[in-house]
Computed example of a mutant assay.
Amino acid sequence: MPRTARIVLPDYPHHVVQRGHNKQVVFPETSDFEHYLADLQELKAVFDVKVYAFCLMTNHVHLLLAPGDSAAGLGQLMKGLAGRMTRHRNKLEGRSGTLWESRYKSSVVQTDIYLLACSRYIELNPVRAQMVQRAQDYPWSSLHLRLNEFPKNNWLDESPGFSELGTNLAERITHYASFMEQGVPSSELQLIRGALQRGQLTGSPKFTDEIEEITGLRITQRARGRPAK
């Protein structure tokens, strides 16, 4: 059966997940997490891709990315990240071969009502995995950057949804922290997971119509539901 064509659009956010080959651990050491994040910070500028959220788990990564004028930047970024990390681990272990699954999963995300929901889903991964009790205690997600009141040290891009949470940074941080404390409703969890697994859009039927018009593709399966407010 042929692969489903991946939909990648310039200037739209995309929820991306890449897993280790055969679910193997890709970040066995603290230095591995640091290495990947340094590469992400560097390559996002090289390929003109905004990073709205991320969470590095032991055997996979969640990223919320928005390519600029060229949709190809997303694939180039993911290829660069995967290649650098593979070479890094292979050198340390004195081995060769693949580190990641051959194909990452991605879903275009509707900006106005789903973007913040997707950010929350990503940053709460360590809590759902029972690795920490509070999301802010996990060091390898974007949350500690998002809640940073000193933007000079923050390389995370501010998403449109986050910008609308308040008139200044302090207000936005307070409102987002409250939003995180609400957790992810089960319906929202299923919607985001289903869209990603099937390569669908994370959005409303109206959003699906919009993307069909842009791409000229018929997207027959639609994830139903709406993020909780």
Rank of each mutant, 00 (worst) to 15 (best):
Q190C: 11
A228K: 13
I173K: 03
P28Q: 07
L92N: 14
I211K: 01
E181V: 04
E210W: 10
M78E: 04
L217A: 15
R146W: 05
W140V: 01
N154W: 07
L156W: 02
E181A: 15
S187G: 13
L65M: 10
S178P: 09
T215L: 11
M180G: 03
L147R: 06
Q133A: 14
P151Y: 10
M57Q: 01
L115M: 04
R193Y: 05
K105E: 06
F54M: 05
P185Y: 06
H144N: 13
E188A: 10
E149L: 15
L217V: 06
N148A: 09
H175A: 05
H144P: 11
R193S: 06
A129Y: 11
P13G: 09
F162W: 09
N59F: 09
T215W: 11
A117Y: 02
T4F: 14
L116V: 12
L81S: 02
G194E: 07
P151G: 10
L169H: 05
Y176E: 03
N148W: 05
R218E: 15
P151A: 11
F207W: 10
A135G: 08
L37K: 02
F33L: 07
Q110E: 15
S102E: 14
Q24R: 08
E149S: 14
P185S: 13
E164Q: 14
A72F: 09
G97I: 08
Q133H: 11
A71C: 10
S119Q: 15
I211L: 06
R87P: 01
